[in-house]
Simulated assay, not measured.
Amino acid sequence: MPDASPRSPDPIPALIVKDHRVGHRDRLRERFLNAGAEGIAPYELLELILFRAQPRQDMKPLAKALLARFGSFAEVLTARPDRLREVKGIGDAAIVELKIVEAAAQQMVKGAVAKRTVLGSWAAVMDYCRAAQAFVEREEFRILFLDKRNVLIRDEVQSTGTVDHTPAYPREIIKRALELGSTALILVHNHPSGDPTPSQADITMTKQIVALARAMEIEVHDHLIVGRNGTQSLRKLKLM
């Protein structure tokens, strides 16, 4: 006997919503391989770096938050770990990935200076100093120690200060030069404000170092001041 009870209607198929995140990583990697860094946005380049820290999590919100907080791709890479941790969602694994990329970039530009006559590759020196210090949040006083052929012997940060001052110790600089057998120096420091214009204190300190170095037959080739907005040479400005 046929069933007289009313037949339930066929279920309406659930609406299938496509998640844009599915395959996003592969698409972004493919676009990067095909077009290079010029073919993707800065936040997408950050995403590619952060993918290694979180194998499955959507990294776009974090990448955009980092750019919003620090202002640029370079400033994200050079931000101190303690400041990076202030951004919600970032962990130590992500910070390590960012710092690896920063270190790799500095090694690349430093390679263009190492074992070469520094005065013959001045553009590379400027690039290296800018990569090393232009986006650092505190002032650092760096010395490039050169040998008699003007080849880089050692690159050292002598002191780290505040956002608008770092101490320089002329006697310690010359003492270190003598220890290394260095006959020439390039002085470098950064202005976290972004403006590389030398202050009167910068000029006075440079002249003190030059005078002391000259007495020990050590030449100071230049004092470079780097900032986000460019680089200034005290020698080019005729201030030393």
Rank of each mutant, 00 (worst) to 15 (best):
E219I: 00
V157F: 13
K175D: 10
Q232E: 13
L212E: 15
I186H: 05
T166L: 05
R171S: 15
G194M: 04
V157K: 08
T231K: 03
T206R: 08
I225K: 02
L187A: 10
N229E: 11
R154D: 10
I174K: 00
S193H: 02
E217G: 00
V188C: 11
D164W: 09
R214M: 01
G194D: 04
Q158H: 09
E172R: 15
H189V: 13
T183I: 03
T204G: 00
L180S: 11
S193Y: 02
G194I: 05
L224V: 12
K236E: 14
R171N: 15
A184N: 02
N229R: 08
H189T: 14
D222Q: 07
I153K: 14
Q200M: 14
G181A: 10
V220D: 07
H191D: 02
G181T: 09
I173S: 06
V163P: 00
R171F: 13
V157S: 09
I186M: 06
T162D: 14
M216I: 00
I186T: 09
H191S: 03
V151R: 11
D202N: 13
S182G: 05
V226D: 01
R154S: 10
R228C: 02
V188N: 11
H165Q: 08
S193P: 02
D222I: 00
E217C: 00
I174L: 13
M205C: 11
G161W: 12
K207T: 02
R214N: 12
A168G: 05
T197M: 11
P167C: 00
L180N: 11
A213M: 01
E156I: 08
Q208W: 01
G161M: 12
T197Y: 08
R235H: 07
G194C: 04
D155A: 04
S193E: 07
I173A: 07
G181M: 09
S182K: 04
V226Y: 01
P196K: 07
A177M: 11
L224S: 12
L180G: 11
S159M: 02
N229M: 06
K236H: 12
I173F: 04
P167Q: 08
A201K: 08
T204K: 14
M205S: 14
V220F: 09
I218F: 01
T231S: 07
I173D: 05
S199C: 02
G161T: 13
S159G: 01
A211Q: 15
I209N: 05
D195K: 05
R235V: 07
P196E: 05
T162C: 06
Q208G: 01
R228K: 08
K175R: 13
P167E: 13
S233W: 05
S233F: 04
P198A: 08
E172T: 09
Q158P: 01
I203S: 03
A168E: 11
V220P: 10
A177Y: 04
